[in-house]
Design a protein around this nucleic acid. Structure first.
Lengths: 188, 188
DNA sequence: CGGCTGTGATTGAATGACCAACCAATGTTG
DNA sequence: CAACATTGGTTGGTCATTCAATCACAGCCG
């Protein structure tokens, strides 16, 4: 029953956190949402911060890009569009935690790892594209910072302004990044 | 003495907020930092949220892009690099407030206006570039979403990872966005 | 001039609520 | 009967906000 309860708390924590926000979420609320006693939360998770970080990991298994490998850059952009549409809750949690991470060492470390990991995936794709075209792979790092940053920025815009057209922005990003690699081809 | 005290509180609030973070900042702390009594803060600002939003505006007068007008896109990217280096505190405050804005209507409205305004400036520059090249200006909106998003994403990365090379990312972004417009020219 | 008064500025203590974390007691199960 | 799971109340603290009281200073009047 142990693992079961743990997951129940994680799920409840995710639900409350993405619905109410970190600030407005208390351990008591999480316990109520999960239908367990308040004390149990601290029995499984040393602190609120550790719980929240585990929630992020828990939810990242769903956010993380599918194995890109074969599909390539274009497919990755399509994936991203879908993630923005569907994983609103996860994205909202992530953006909130980024804000908190700036002044909380524990959450800061977790977010730093997450950011590095995500950008690393983009860099891998970029490197792969450069290899295919026999271009200088040195630029991949900067490109990855710009492209992953753009995806994050677009996610934020779509969370802040419900009417923001994220698909349009991602398409523009795709066109921009590809036109830098395939100078001739500009059909987006 | 009235306006003087108000500004003293705003400055103190900015200092504490960007140093300690929203969560860890109390009205009492702000009052102490500014050398005024606790009650004065609520005398000038109805609530903590309203104070924080006024701090954002107060600080935006420094963040806001200089009048771009003549200078054009390339100069704007250079400006951005400098802002990332120098306005760490303002940027940290902004990122934090974005996180909070997702679940606080009052701060949400303020952040929404800010985002729209900032992206609007990028869109103006994009439109101008398209006009010069006699290209279809329809794409400007999507481009603006992608480029402004990228700038925000790069700011966030540089805040989260101190060793992140923001200049490199901005350069890559500049190269990407310009190569979409000037297909031939790729000297970054 | 000197006292009076009204208004806005300022003070710091009080209020009421909330919360993370802890813990002693109870339940469950192998 | 141990070891783990679960309970819910307690603790010690923090916080935003309110408020009654004081202060500074203006103009006005006698």
């Amino acid at each position: 029953m142990s693992t079961d309860t743990r997951e129940k708390i994680l799920q409840a924590a995710f639900d409350v956190l993405s619905r109410e926000g970190y600030e407005n979420t208390s351990i008591k609320q999480i316990a109520e949402e999960g239908g367990v006693a308040q004390g149990l939360v601290h029995y499984y998770f040393k602190s609120k911060q550790r719980l929240v970080m585990e929630v992020l990991q828990f939810v990242c298994q769903k956010i993380e890009l599918g194995d890109q490998g074969e599909a390539g850059a274009l497919a990755a952009f399509e994936d991203t569009k879908q993630k923005i549409r569907e994983d609103r809750g996860s994205n909202a949690l992530l953006v909130q935690l980024i804000g908190i991470s700036l002044h909380d060492p524990e959450i800061g470390a977790g977010i730093r790892d997450f950011v590095r990991g995500q950008r690393g995936r983009v860099e891998d794709i970029a490197r792969q594209v450069f290899a295919e075209r026999e271009l200088d792979p040195t630029a991949a790092r900067g490109i990855a910072g710009a492209v992953w940053g753009a995806v994050l920025g677009i996610i934020i815009q779509s969370l802040v302004e419900p009417e923001f057209n994220a698909d349009e922005a991602i398409d523009a990003l795709a066109a921009m990044s590809l036109s830098a690699v395939y100078p001739a081809d500009q059909s987006a």
